[in-house]
C-alpha cells in the first residue's frame, strides 16, 4: 500500500490529536463521581412545588410574622445590606397588588387588599432564567428545582432581566461583612454573582424539608412532590382554589397561593 506524504501527515495529525485527548479520557475514567451517590436519607421527588396558604398565614400568624423569612436568610447566609438598591433576598413579603399585578381592585375584600404576600423563586417548570443563561450556571434539576451553580456564574445578569418575578439578587459588593450571623454549614456568595432561593436542595439532600416550611409553626407553607398523588400539596391543590403569579407568561410557576 502506498501512502502519500499528505495522507501520512493527516493520519499522524489525527493520532496526535487522539493522544492529547487521552489524559482527558483518563481523568474522566478516574473521576471521583463514580464513587458518589445521593444520600439514601435524601427526600426524592420528581416535581417539587410549594403551596402557600396566605389565609392561614394571615389568620394564625402574629402580626408582621417573618419567621420563614428569617429562617431562610439565616440558614443560607443571606446578607442584610440595608440599601434597597443592592438588597439580596430569597423569600420576602410584597403587598398583594405588587405580587399579583393587575389583580387588585378598589372593591377587593379587606382581608386581601394591601395585605403582604410571601414571594420567592417560583421554580418555574419552563424557566426563562435557565433559557437565557449563557453558561448553564442556572439550570433545572431533574426534580424540577431551578438552582444556581455560583462557581460558574459570570455575573452577566441576563437571568435578572429574564425573570418576571424579581426573584433574583445580584451581589453588587462582597456580602460577607453584611451577614449578621454566619451559618458555618453553608457557603456565602461573593461579589459579582447572582443568587436566589434554591428550595433548600442542601436540606432535601439530607432528608429535611425546606427551612421556611419548617419554620412556619402554623403550616401555612406546604412543600411536596406534584407527581406524588399522596403528597400533601396535591391535597391542597385539589381541595382549595389556588392561583399562581403571572401565569399568562407561560413560565408555569410551581409556587401556588391560597388567597
Amino acid at each position: 500500500m502506498k501512502i502519500s506524504r499528505r495522507s501520512f501527515l493527516k493520519m499522524g495529525g489525527t493520532f496526535a490529536l487522539g493522544f492529547t485527548a487521552l489524559p482527558g479520557l483518563k481523568a474522566f475514567a478516574a473521576s471521583g463521581l463514580l464513587k458518589a451517590s445521593p444520600d439514601p436519607k435524601a427526600l426524592a421527588g420528581k416535581k417539587w412545588a410549594m403551596a402557600i396558604n396566605m389565609k392561614v398565614c394571615r389568620e394564625k400568624g402574629p402580626e408582621g410574622c417573618k419567621e420563614c423569612v428569617v429562617a431562610c436568610h439565616q440558614v443560607h447566609n443571606v446578607p442584610d445590606i440595608g440599601n434597597p438598591k443592592e438588597e439580596v433576598k430569597w423569600i420576602w413579603k410584597e403587598p398583594f397588588a405588587n405580587a399579583f399585578p393587575g389583580q387588585e381592585h378598589e372593591y377587593l375584600e379587606e382581608t386581601v387588599k394591601g395585605q403582604p404576600f410571601l414571594v420567592l423563586c417560583n421554580h418555574c417548570d419552563n424557566p426563562p432564567c435557565v433559557r437565557v443563561c449563557p453558561t448553564q450556571a442556572t439550570f433545572k434539576r431533574k426534580d424540577g428545582i431551578v438552582v444556581m451553580d455560583d462557581h460558574r456564574c459570570i455575573g452577566c445578569r441576563f437571568c435578572m432581566a429574564a425573570c418576571p418575578f424579581g426573584a433574583r439578587s445580584f451581589n453588587f459588593r462582597d456580602p460577607r461583612p453584611y451577614i449578621p450571623k454566619l451559618n458555618r454549614e453553608f457557603p456565602t456568595r461573593e461579589k459579582g454573582v447572582v443568587e436566589k432561593c434554591n428550595f433548600c436542595v442542601e436540606r432535601l439532600a439530607a432528608g429535611l424539608s425546606p427551612a421556611c416550611v419548617e419554620a412556619c409553626r402554623h403550616g401555612a407553607l406546604v412543600f411536596g412532590d406534584l407527581e406524588d398523588p399522596n403528597a400533601g400539596i396535591r391535597d391542597v391543590l385539589s381541595s382549595r382554589f389556588t392561583i399562581r403569579r403571572k401565569p399568562e407568561l407561560g413560565t408555569r410557576p410551581k409556587v401556588y397561593y391560597v388567597v
Partner: peptide, 10 residues
C-alpha cells in the same frame, strides 16, 4: 456532583 447532580455521599 453535589451542585449539579445532587450526589452528596462519597
Amino acid at each position: 456532583g453535589v451542585v449539579r447532580d445532587g450526589r452528596t455521599v462519597y
